[in-house]
Structure formats: C-alpha cells, structure tokens
Design a protein around this nucleic acid. Structure first.
Lengths: 208, 208
DNA sequence: ACCGTTATTGTCCAGTTGGACAATATTGGA
DNA sequence: TCCAATATTGTCCAACTGGACAATAACGGT
C-alpha cells in the first residue's frame, strides 16, 4: 500500500497531478485513472477526496489560479506602476493559458468550473484596475474610466493569448508589442514606456 | 433501411448533425453514435464518409466556418464601410462562438482542426483589413498599419466573446459598446459612429 | 435483365470510463 | 492497549467508446 499521507497533503497531491494532466491533455481528457496513476494510488481513493470528476477538475483549476494570482499580486506590489503593467501584460507561459482556454470551453457544461472561472476573471480585472489606479495616482497615466479600461485590456490580453497559444498566429514577442501599444494608447502613457520597463520577470510556477 | 441518399447529401447531413451536437455538448463529447442517432443512420455508416472521429469534427468545423465567412463577406460588401464595421463587430450569436472556443481548446490535440482554425482566423483578419481599407479610402477612417489594426481588433473581439459567452461577465450590449469604442479610437472614427450605424443585421444561420 | 458499384445495416470487439463497495491497513487518541 | 476514525486498496459493474467487417439493399449503366 502507498505511504499513508495526511488528508490535506494527499488532496494537494491529487490536485497537482490533475493540473499536470490538464496541461498535457486538456480538461476533457482528465480521467480518474490517469490521475491516480500519476499520484501512485488506487483510483477509488480519489472519490474519498472529491465528489466526482467534475468537482475534481473544478477544484484543481480553482486551486491553481488562486495560488497564481496571489503570487502575481505580491509581485506587482513590489514594482512601480509602469513596470507592474509591463509585467502583468507580458505573455504568460503557454501551460498557463492552455488551461484557461480549456476551462472556457468546459465551463458551459461544468457549473463548479464556471463559478471558479467567473470569480477569477473578476480577480484579474480587479488586480489590473488597482495597478492602473496606482499609475494614475503616480501621474504616469490618465484615464476616464478605470474599470472600463481594465475590462477592455483584459479581453485584449485573452484574445492575444488565444492567437499565441491555441493557434500559432503570433509569437510571444509580437503579442507583447500589440498589448503594450494598446495599453499605452488607452492610458495615455508615452509610447515605448512599457517595453522599456522590461519584459516580465518570470511569473510563478504553479504545476505542482 | 433508411432512405438512400446521394453521397454529398448524406455527407452534409452528417456534418450538420455534428455541428448541432458540438453546439450542444462541445467538440470533446462528439461521439459517432450520437451523430448517427441524430441523423437516423447506423454509426458504422459515418466511417464510410469520414476517416475517423477527428477528421469528422475538423471537417464539420471547416465546413461551417467556410460557409459563414462567405456569407458574411457578401453581406459586408453591400454595406458602406462604417456600417460594415458595425456589422462585423456586433456580437455574434452564442452558438457560433462557443464552437470557436471549443475549437481553440481542441486544436492542440487535433492537427486537422488546428489547420482549419489557423486558416479561418487569417480569413477573419483579412476580411476585417479589407473593410478598414475601404473605410480609409472613403475618408471615414485613418490608420498607419491596417494589418496591425486588424490583428489587434480581432483579438479584442475574440476576448470579449469569451467574456460574453464562456463566462457571463458582459452582455452583448456591453460587449458591442466596448469593441465599438476601441475601433473608433484605433481608426480615428468619430465616437458614436458605429453605434449610430446600427447594430448588426442578423448574421447567417449555419446549423444545418 | 444483368451486373458492378456503393450506400447502408447490424454485429462484434477490445478498451476505457466513472462510480460503488466491501475488505484491509494505518493512524491518533482515550 | 484497545478502539473508533479514516486512509487505502482491489475488484466489480454497467455504460460507452471508436473501429472493423461481413452481409445486404438499392442504385445506375449497359
């Protein structure tokens, strides 16, 4: 029998394995058996921790994004507003976004996942709005409606991520240029400032 | 035995059924048996027309989008450039976009689908670029780089579609306002022109 | 009237799936 | 030390999957 673990430890192990499989093969092809094999346990055990397959993938998505956004928020807090904008919009690692895209397509048929998705999307808009407010307060940007800016720029970043990761329409460099330009235009920031502030320091690992 | 049909007729019937199932349950849950039941034939017959499941869904996506874009392009050609921009960016019916989103998430694991997706995405960018060029030629818009505009605005529309359809972050009206504003700003069109040009006439049906 | 072509069916298969459950091993506390 | 709680296993199941295939029915041309 496999080593006996504490409840929380095992739970996180299962979630980590689920995320690794999602990154490789997508939400739709997560099977309890694959997850169990990856962890090294019997597949029946997963039902001891999660009510069913849908709840498992929803919990995995929620866990990953919660951790990632907390880490990102901490990172941004340590940067000046312009650098924070550059960091936030720099192209995210491919693994990351493929999971989001998969979640979008699964959400209409998985209520728990849809709820997590909506919650975290609003988190993203809030985090960006906060950075924009800091930039405005610092006199580095100006705008009439921060929330509208945040919503529009978040949508743009999502769309570019699709072009970059789901299709091979643009590479990371081009995507950054496009979104940086749009941010500068929208927030009346001097063109080139974001690129000058440097591309992103690595955003956190979350595959566990 | 079911009524005997011509090869092409049956083929289109199968594709239509596939699309209806995709719209209901997503690409990943298309099964040969469901498709066969929807058409009213034996599931073995599908293999007479398509090499396998992946080829079936890729062919269905390709067929649908090809028809839709041709019809859209014809519609746009009959409108003045500003009205054409308004029509192109008006929120697309939900069925439509859920299929695109599903395709994005399936593409990394279905090469035939990925090829169709990339091709049609470029079609979209080209169609929009043509409309922008008409607007510029008519003196109704100005820009430095039509292709960059087209790419950026297409990405924005995709991202907003995700917010509208995969999540319930914005409704169709808000999404239109956001994208209209972005188009006007980017192309130096007088604010409000697009909304004034009227929201879209219905874009074509494509579920057969 | 014949025949080759092909559209169509029904049936079989081996593999995989999520879930249920009884049996067992291990723990932590009284 | 004993017991209750719970972590863990292994096994079973009914449902469903894509695919293979031989048998058959309907067609179009000659």
């Amino acid at each position: 029998m496999a080593e006996r673990k504490s409840s929380e430890e095992r739970r996180e192990q299962i979630i980590g394995a689920t995320l690794r499989i999602v990154a490789r093969k997508g939400f739709a092809s997560v099977t309890l058996r694959d997850v169990a094999t990856e962890v090294g346990i019997a597949h029946g055990l997963i039902r001891h921790y999660f009510a069913g397959r849908d709840e498992l993938v929803a919990a995995a998505f929620d866990h990953a994004v919660t951790a990632e956004l907390a880490s990102d928020e901490q990172l941004l807090a340590g940067l000046d507003p312009i650098a924070a904008l550059a960091a936030w919009f720099s192209t995210t690692p491919e693994d990351h976004y493929l999971v989001w895209i998969d979640a979008w397509s699964e959400a209409p048929r998985n209520p728990a996942l849809a709820a997590a998705l909506e919650r975290h999307h609003r988190d993203c808009e809030r985090i960006l709005a906060d950075v924009i407010r800091r930039a405005v307060a610092a006199g580095a940007a100006s705008t009439a409606d921060v929330d509208a800016d945040s919503r529009m720029l978040t949508a743009l970043a999502d769309g570019l991520a699709v072009q970059a990761h789901a299709m091979s329409i643009v590479d990371a460099r081009e995507a950054d240029d496009i979104v940086f330009g749009a941010v500068e235009a929208r927030l009346a920031i001097a063109p080139g400032s974001l690129a000058a502030a440097g591309r992103a320091p690595a955003r956190g690992q979350w595959l566990g």
